[in-house]
Structures are given as C-alpha cells and as structure tokens.
Simulated assay, not measured.
Amino acid sequence: MAGHSKWKNIQNRKGAQDAKRGKIFQKMSKEIYVAAKSGGPDVESNAALRLAIEKSKSVNVPNDVIKRAIDKATGTGADENYEEVIYEGYGPGGVAVLVYCLTENRNRTAPNVRVAFNKNGGSLGESGSVGYMFDRKGRLFIERTESTDEDIVMMAALEAGADDIESTEEGFEIVTQPSDFLAVKESLEAEGVEFISAEIEMIPSMYTELSAEQEEQFEKMLEALEDDDDVQDIYHNAAE
C-alpha cells in the first residue's frame, strides 16, 4: 500500500503469519483437504494438491499436519463438504477487494465477511463488481543476494515460459500464466534458486492510492478478515 514496497509487504505478511501460526495451519489444512478430496492424494497427478502442499510448506506447516489433512480427505473424514465462495467489495478509499473463502456454512461466512467490511469503512458489492480488475497469474519473488546470478534467473524463467520479469535492487518479480507456474518454479529450483514468495494470485490491473488514515483503517479491515477461519486469501488493489 501507499508508502510501502511490495517486498516490505511480503516480509510483513510473513511476520503476521508467524504470529498466527495455529490459524494459518488450520487454513492450509482446509485447502489441502479440498484439493485432495477433489483430485486425489497423488501430488504427481493433482496439481492443486501439489500447490497447496508447497504453499503450506512455505509457511512452515509440519509434514504431519499436511498428512493428516490428506488422510482425512481420502478416508473417514471425506464426508465434509467445503465450497469456495468469493466475496467482492470495496475498502476505505474505494480499494477493490476479493475475499476467497472455503466454508461448509455460507450462512455463517457471509455475515462475518460483511461485518468486517462495514465496520472498517468498506462495503460488499455484487458478484463481478471488482473481479474484472484482477487477473489470475503465477507470481514468484526472489530476493537478490551476493550469490544471485541474474542471467541464470532470467534464462531459466524465460525458457520455462515466464510472461514477465522485473529486476530491481531488491530482487526479481516473475509473472507467469497459471498453467506455466509450476514449470517456471521447478526450472528455477533446479538452478538452486530460493523464493521468498511463490503463489498463484489475483493480480490487480489498476491500483488505488490511500491516505495514511485510509491505510490504517484498511489494515484493520484486513486483520478482521484474516482472523476469520473461513477466509483463505485476500487480494486487493491498494497501491504498494
């Protein structure tokens, strides 16, 4: 958001995740459960499960937690039914917000999300009200270090199908089509590259600037949404 680089935002998000480790584990377990239930437990044939596991490991979810979620999805707990629900709306200053939820009870989730918006200067919109401002893309962040070889990063990413690479003093931001995300990630991993973030996200095509007061209010709204057990991911177009 205003006054903060995207790199700083990633670091802040990682710190917030560390502070809410139990809740993060619960949310990632749910995501793994849904992926395993819909596509089976084999990560080689189930790309959604593979991505969910990699995302879980990036936030230090233990292997036994991952295994329990998969076992539950394919065993005695497979009768649970979560559905993905996407809420669209506006935050303070007209910021566009997408909220992705996994829930077994819409009647619980919808009011909770609405309250988080309404109490913090926002409002829920109709389906499609802000979704057109976002594109689903793979995005990988690589921090620049003394051992980083820019030519290797560029070559490996482009040859594997990356759409765009932005190189800055802090590192590299690589954008891919969702279908090319794993190929690009694996190509870079084969070169020994490590990521500070690697996910398929909803990336905004336009951004909204916030005042300091609006930014503070928006942070409170994000915190309220992140505290909801049904909320999996939040995307917005607040300027960084």
Rank of each mutant, 00 (worst) to 15 (best):
E54N: 15
I86D: 14
V65W: 05
A156R: 05
A156K: 06
E216D: 11
P92Y: 09
I165V: 12
G128N: 08
S5F: 10
S127P: 04
V153P: 02
R21Q: 05
Q214S: 10
G40T: 07
P62H: 01
R108P: 02
A35Q: 08
I70N: 01
V175W: 08
Y207W: 09
N63I: 09
Y87G: 07
L140D: 06
E194K: 15
D163Q: 15
K119D: 11
A239I: 12
T176R: 13
A160W: 06
A157D: 07
G192H: 09
Y207V: 03
E104V: 03
A224T: 04
F195H: 11
L124R: 07
R144P: 10
A162F: 02
D71I: 03
L102M: 08
L140H: 10
Q17P: 09
K8D: 06
L182N: 05
S147K: 13
K8S: 06
G192R: 08
D79L: 06
V193G: 07
G138F: 01
M154D: 12
G131V: 03
N107R: 12
A183D: 13
A157E: 08
D79R: 06
Y100L: 15
D230W: 02
A110E: 12
L102E: 04
Y87W: 06
S58V: 01
G77P: 03
N81S: 11
A162Y: 02
K8N: 05
F141R: 14
K20G: 01
Q177N: 07
L188G: 05
L188N: 04
Q11H: 12
V153L: 04
S179N: 08
V61P: 11
E143D: 09
D228E: 10
M206K: 14
A48D: 14
D163G: 13
F141Q: 15
L225W: 09
L225D: 09
T168G: 07
R114G: 13
V175T: 13
S56D: 03
E31G: 04
E143H: 06
A116D: 01
T109P: 15
G171S: 07
A47F: 03
